[in-house]
Amino acid sequence: MAHILLIEDDAAVRDTFEIILGADGHQVTMAADGLQGLSLLRTLKVDLVLTDIIMPNCDGVEVIRALRKRADAPPIIAISGGARTSAVNYLEVAKLLGAQQILSKPVGAMELLRTISDVLAAQPVK
């Protein structure tokens, strides 16, 4: 199964995703914000990044932007709990920026796992 980096600031949500991903046999590394996630990615090689969008300390949009600059960037699934209090729909932006898939919280366990396996399956084999 896949090695997934999970970037999420809400501890309860983080634990929930870890359990769901673990149930499908994925190996999960967790980060509590974008900054931590990006620094982990400097040394860690993962198959997929699952990131929240609205976080303190470098949010998901910045993570996606930073990741996209790398040639060997893993695929990204962006996940968000709603609109930030501006006119812009951040999930749309995430997609525009190059996230392979976007999901809205709360997401069901099966939908999450299905999306992950779809994104992984669409990756060219290395």
Binding site: D10, A12, T16, G81, P106
Partner: peptide, 8 residues
């Protein structure tokens, strides 16, 4: 966010 653990 709070509903995520319940639903997931």
């Amino acid at each position: 966010n709070q509903l995520q653990p319940v639903i997931g």
